[in-house]
Structures are given as structure tokens and as C-alpha cells.
């Protein structure tokens, strides 16, 4: 494309777009260190808002709940999603129906899946709480893990599986000694992606967590805080949440050089 591009114009576009993308979140990060906490006046550098977070019992309990949901749903989704990916890729015939089912959790609007699960759980008279959030998060998490692992499998040299069989290995031995180790970076990348998605997920958690205060997750807590009165603490909390996602995603990226997650 370089031959068509005016270098100055391209530079201007990049500068403008990156400013648009990064100024708002940078402001947030900067404010989290503003002693006075107000967006319009800088009153000095301070980490006091981070300290306040630690003493906010609601936030700490929400953070703990989020961690539980994210860890459990990630573990489940990683196992289910990886097996699914391997199964789909070694199948010779590609079914359109199968593809749709696997693709659906990634494109279905959150609100629709959220109300569907809410109706489902209430019609079955299931008491809702963190466990129903976990069950629900696994749905989209396994789809994302599956897509990351499949992307890797596309460049996977299947002849090494045959080579392993040819050298005398049974199918389980081949799976454990050849397929799994080769796929491990992609599986971990998928798991990190799932973890990030789960930590950040709001709508489905909001609908499937039930009414109890003890099943509030961090995004639910943030939503409530934004909606009912902004306190300066939220800048600090937002910065931490962003940092967690960015670190997990950067790690995922490093492990999975096959492509960007979601690509």
C-alpha cells in the first residue's frame, strides 16, 4: 500500500487515531493518581485512592467473586474448548451447522444470551448466584478458546500425528506426548483470553447472578458505582482492571504468535 500513500497524511491519520484511542483512558489513569480526585483540578500526585480501594469491603468482595468466576470458568472452558477445537479440526467433513453452533456464542448479542439464561434458570427454579454466572461464562469462553486453538491447528502439521502412530504410539499416547505439548502455547493463550473476557464481562453476569449482594462481580460493582455517583476511587479501580486485562492479553499475544485474539 505504501506506493499509494502520502507519508505525511498517513502519519497524521495514525497520530489522530491513536490520540482518540488513548487520550480517554490515559486521562483516567492520570486522575487515579490525582490527590483531589476531581477531573478539572490537579492537586498533586497521590496513591491514596488505591489505598481506599483496599478498605472498601464491597469492592474487595466483588473482586474476589470475579476472581472465582474467572478462574473456574476459564479452567472449564479451556478443557472443553481445546478438546472441541481438536475434534473439529481432525474431522474431515466440515458441517455448517456445527460451525454455526461454535461461532454463535461469539456473535450473539450479550443481552440476548443474558435474558435467555435468566429465563432458563428461573424456569428450572435454579437458585442463581456465582455458580450460574460460571455456567454462563463458560459458554462464550469455550467458544473463544476453541477459536484460538483452532487458528493454531490450521498451521499444525498433522503428519506428526501420523508419524507418532507410525513409530508405535497409541492414540492416547500421541495426544499426550505430541498434540498437547505442541498445542500448549495456543491453549494457554486461549485460557488467558478467556480469563480476561470473564473478568470484564458485565451483562451476562448482571442477569444471571441473582439478587444476592454476595454474588456481585467487579464489573457489576463498577456499573453501580458509575451509575449512582462517581467517586474518585473508581479511577483507581478502573486503572487496575485495565492493567489486569492488558497484561493478560499481552501475555496471550506473546504465546500465540499465530494471530491476534479474535482475528
Amino acid at each position: 500500500m505504501a506506493s499509494l500513500a502520502n507519508p505525511r497524511l498517513m502519519l497524521a491519520i495514525l497520530a489522530a487515531v491513536f490520540a482518540f484511542l488513548y487520550v480517554p483512558i490515559s486521562v483516567l489513569v492520570a486522575l487515579s493518581f490525582n490527590d483531589g480526585g476531581l477531573p478539572t483540578a490537579w492537586t498533586g500526585f497521590s496513591t491514596r485512592w488505591y489505598g481506599e480501594l483496599l478498605h472498601n469491603r464491597d469492592i474487595m468482595s466483588a473482586a474476589f467473586n470475579t476472581l472465582v468466576v474467572a478462574v473456574v470458568s476459564t479452567v472449564l472452558a479451556t478443557i472443553l474448548g481445546s478438546l472441541l477445537a481438536i475434534g473439529v479440526e481432525i474431522r474431515r467433513r466440515k458441517g455448517r451447522f456445527l460451525e454455526t453452533i461454535i461461532f454463535a456464542p461469539m456473535i450473539i448479542p450479550d443481552i440476548v444470551l443474558a435474558i435467555a439464561l435468566l429465563s432458563f434458570f428461573s424456569l428450572l427454579n435454579v437458585t442463581m448466584g456465582l455458580h450460574t454466572v460460571i455456567l454462563s461464562h463458560v459458554v462464550f469462553n469455550l467458544a473463544f478458546v476453541c477459536s484460538v486453538v483452532r487458528a493454531r491447528l490450521k498451521t499444525f502439521d498433522w503428519s506428526i500425528v501420523e508419524a507418532s502412530t507410525d513409530l508405535g504410539a497409541s492414540t492416547p499416547v500421541t495426544l499426550v506426548r505430541i498434540v498437547l505439548p505442541v498445542m500448549l502455547p495456543a491453549v494457554i493463550a486461549g485460557a488467558l483470553l478467556a480469563f480476561t473476557l470473564s473478568v470484564d464481562e458485565f451483562i451476562i453476569a448482571f442477569f444471571t447472578a441473582g439478587a444476592g449482594r454476595d454474588s456481585i462481580t467487579l464489573p457489576m460493582q463498577i456499573f453501580a458505582m458509575i451509575r449512582f455517583g462517581v467517586t474518585p476511587e473508581i479511577n483507581a479501580l478502573a486503572t487496575i482492571v485495565m492493567a489486569v486485562s492488558v497484561i493478560a492479553l499481552t501475555l496471550s499475544q506473546r504465546l500465540n504468535r499465530g494471530g491476534l485474539p479474535g482475528q
Binding site: I25, L28, I222, A238, V241, M242, S245, V246
Partner: peptide, 13 residues
């Protein structure tokens, strides 16, 4: 890949 709520909140600020 950072939190959707947080990104939206940034615009409130």
C-alpha cells in the same frame, strides 16, 4: 481488550 465499562466511563469523565 480493556474493560468495556471502564472505557465508557472514561468518556463520562
Amino acid at each position: 481488550w480493556s474493560n468495556y465499562l471502564v472505557r465508557t466511563y472514561a468518556w463520562i469523565v
